[in-house]
Design a protein around this nucleic acid. Structure first.
Lengths: 220, 220
DNA sequence: ATGGAACCGTACCGTACGGTTCGGTAAATG
DNA sequence: CATTTACCGAACCGTACGGTACGGTTCCAT
């Protein structure tokens, strides 16, 4: 479980590879962020600096040195997770109706899986808790969640339109409709603590249904 | 603004009319809850007992006497707001396609308006912040929000099906699709602090579009 | 080996806030 | 008038937690 890196000689080799904003993160700091994230999933907004330090077996002083203050740590956690989820752009293969449908289904499946996961729920709860014009957490989550997904899906939609398979004027509108058809009330219910049994079969069925409905609305 | 009731002689006449759970609320207490709600909209989760007492010009002692503790106050706020929003069941008139469409549009319009309002955002943020198996806030919001809306819409859907205008097997599925088509990413974005210009024209257009799409998917 | 950088662990401080207590007041009751 | 009830206002307490200080340790570079 814990598996914190003890042999600090690795840091020199592995660190400096990953940048976060303007900061570089040593291996040790990345490990701490992973541990903090797992703790966040457990305790939610009751995450405490002392708790992180104890779990990560580091000193609070180091936390403050690395991340500035509590808000900086939370921001780093969110950005760190976001940096990890920079997934594959689906290949622009020759676009047939079957390929389009399969791609949409796969997209919806992955998306639902992520949204229904513990980490997504925890991070969105955190960002919503500290939302407002002041904190940038909500903005960060939006940028790396909702908007990043949009950027990834739109090329697929445009390819479908280019192949004469889809018909729409506003790709943003089309994407938002797909958003609604895929996620529906799932995210809000999870955020509100609704205990939700969402089996893999359910997700598969939902992905198929959402794709089917989307094609019925926007298919040419 | 403030307009706290000074003349306490009114309480005797007006109180005991409204029950909340098993508790009755005096007029004074209802006023305090309204004030607390407005303060909650302003300050969010930084709502403090002292702040409520000062704004409502009452003593903290009274707050604790009436609501038990902070969690009790928050629960009372949510339930109080929920008690106010127990809207009209739309009349089961003779169901034509035009009437169905108009009803759906009106429903979507009202719904979007509520969801995009400050109060809804504040209450959902609050409930999400304190979500988890422990707190019942999330459950209360879900019951009086998502599920109450479902209960109100389903009769309309069934009436439409009865009149041969709609076709669906599972009314819950149909409702959830309508949910997705109407709200899409609006609620999550607002919860995450996305500054959102949603004019009345936008809401009207969204309601029409969602209804049109829904009828395309489920129309007979 | 030696100096220094980074870090751990812990004790400590300041403050904010939930919750309690108490004295005082005004209206209702009888 | 005496008593009770309900409330206000303010002082007070306990605690949790963010943030800091500091002594001791590990490890690398020279």
């Amino acid at each position: 479980m814990g598996a914190a890196i003890r042999d600090r000689s690795m840091e020199v080799k592995l660190s400096a590879a990953i940048k976060l904003g303007d900061e570089e993160l040593t291996q040790r700091q990345q490990d701490v962020l992973d541990i903090a994230l797992s703790l966040l999933v457990e305790v939610g907004d009751k995450l405490t600096m002392t708790g992180v330090a104890r779990r990560a077996r580091c000193s609070k002083e180091s936390l403050y040195k690395w991340f500035g203050d509590r808000d900086g740590l939370l921001t780093a956690i969110v950005q760190w997770q976001a940096a990890k989820v920079r997934p594959v752009p689906l290949g622009p293969q020759r676009m047939s109706i079957e390929a389009l449908q399969a791609n949409l289904e796969r997209f919806a499946y992955d998306w639902l899986k992520v949204i229904a996961g513990d980490i997504s729920v925890a991070l969105n709860r955190l960002a919503i808790t500290h939302a407002g014009p002041l904190s940038n957490l909500g903005h960060t989550v939006l940028t790396n969640g909702r908007f990043a997904v949009g950027k990834r899906l739109k090329p697929l939609l445009k390819a479908g339109r280019g192949a004469g398979l889809l018909r729409f004027d506003d790709e943003e509108e089309a994407f938002r409709t797909f958003f609604g058809l895929v996620l529906r009330d799932v995210q809000v219910r999870l955020l509100l603590g609704d205990e939700f049994e969402l089996s893999d079969q359910d997700v598969i069925r939902d992905a198929k249904r959402a794709t089917e409905q989307f094609l019925k609305l926007y298919g040419a």
